[in-house]
Design a protein around this nucleic acid. Structure first.
Lengths: 234, 234
DNA sequence: CCTTACGCTCTTGCATGGCACAGGACGATA
DNA sequence: TATCGTCCTGTGCCATGCAAGAGCGTAAGG
């Protein structure tokens, strides 16, 4: 095998393929709707079609690709309606996480959240959008981790993958004033968590997610849910 | 090699394997923790190991089996903690479904829910637990369908599969008085939905799920590693 | 010129066989 | 007898080959 490059031989190859393909799709390296050929991927990763095939099958159950039998595998393109649906789920789960965290009392995640908000304040003051986007993601991740519920976390991860959220959060924050508003809302949520007011924390967190969704959809250029970007018709 | 059975050659083989294995695990035909051999399953279904392998991998991402590399594949046995976590998710999703349905106004699912409750009242009056269990499942399914959110439904289905809920609901209803109480709670939820009071509908629905969980855990014999209790197919 | 049907190619689906590794049984040695 | 090393078996993992369905270009017929 001529393929003794950076491909880590540790662990199974398909795990590597799954992780890498997932990363690419979420990060947006591959255009939504683009076809994925088993053979091409197999050559690229230096393996046979079998592990690639199994990796794609797993990504399908995660909702990242769509396998049309005997036709091909394609990166899924969430329609506008699906995005709305995913945000409803996001609202649910993050709201619940806030409530659960409030009920748990003072846990290490609380300290990390406070630290996160301090840094976020600075980033907003500097108008450093990129850094703030990172901190937003960390804030939400800490919230989920603090809920201490593995099933909640698992469903959340799958959700975020389908949303390709890391791509979208930048769009959301590009709305003028959104970063400052978002930062304020985070403060309120953490405040309510510290007061152990799970009820209000959940409520405010939900509104926060809704606001985030509105900012995102306002920033999305075109509805284009099923834009079959044409094949340059002859 | 008892081949030549009613194996449908029409659909893809692995789809058949997935569906059948999922059915067995959920229904409880296979003991939790039991090892699944690729080779044995391949022979039983009359196919090669490849589709079986891919089927098991999909079931793994659904949380129904656990693949330990180089060791074997086993049916997952949800711990008591995981059951609690799953019920938290169930509470979330069904509560949200009640809220969403209330917001939608009068849709066909509402009529079906009313019909369902009429039949459920009769079943409770007759003390027909088996029929009531079916109606409970239908009630919750209608609620989810009425929410008109495909992502919500997808996550709900995965949840129910992991819970093997169809097995558990009977345990829950075996608690004395639980059926009557459950039926009453269903009525209240539907009432609130009809009044378009999504807020209260969600709240009551959550309490209903919590009550159901308490009834279930009270009926569970022990938190032992894996109880293989005989099928109560009467 | 338009319609229809053929056939080619590309894709995935499945079968088969070899390989590497984990776990346990067995036996040799102190 | 206890302990350690070795072999054996079972399992998942991967490579390769063949078969079949889907899409599309092209050519024949009206």
């Amino acid at each position: 095998m001529n393929r003794a490059k950076s491909e880590p031989k540790n662990g199974s190859m398909q795990a590597t393929v799954i992780a890498e393909m997932r990363r690419r799709i979420i990060k947006g390296d591959i255009d939504p709707g683009a076809p994925l050929s088993e053979f091409a991927l197999a050559e690229e990763f230096g393996v046979s079609r079998t592990p690639v095939r199994e990796a794609l099958k797993q990504l399908q159950t995660e909702g990242l690709v769509e396998i049309r039998p005997r036709v091909g595998t394609f990166v899924t393109t969430p329609s506008r309606r699906e995005i709305t649906e995913l945000f409803v789920m996001k609202e649910l789960i993050e709201g619940a996480a806030a409530r659960l965290l409030a009920q748990r009392g003072r846990v290490p995640e609380i300290d990390k959240l406070e630290q996160n908000l301090r840094e976020a304040d600075e980033a907003v003051a500097r108008d450093d959008r990129e850094r703030y986007a990172e901190l937003v993601q960390e804030f939400h991740d800490l919230l989920i981790a603090g809920a201490d519920n593995s099933k909640l976390e698992a469903h959340y991860r799958m959700l975020m993958n389908q949303l390709a959220y890391s791509r979208l959060v930048n769009t959301s924050l590009s709305q003028p004033g959104r970063a400052l508003q978002s930062d304020r809302e985070h403060h309120i949520v953490l405040e309510l968590i510290l007061e152990k007011d799970g009820d209000s924390a959940e409520h405010v967190m939900r509104e926060h997610v809704r606001a985030s969704r509105r900012a995102l959809l306002a920033g999305l250029p075109i509805s284009g849910p099923n834009e079959k970007f044409g094949k340059t018709s002859s």
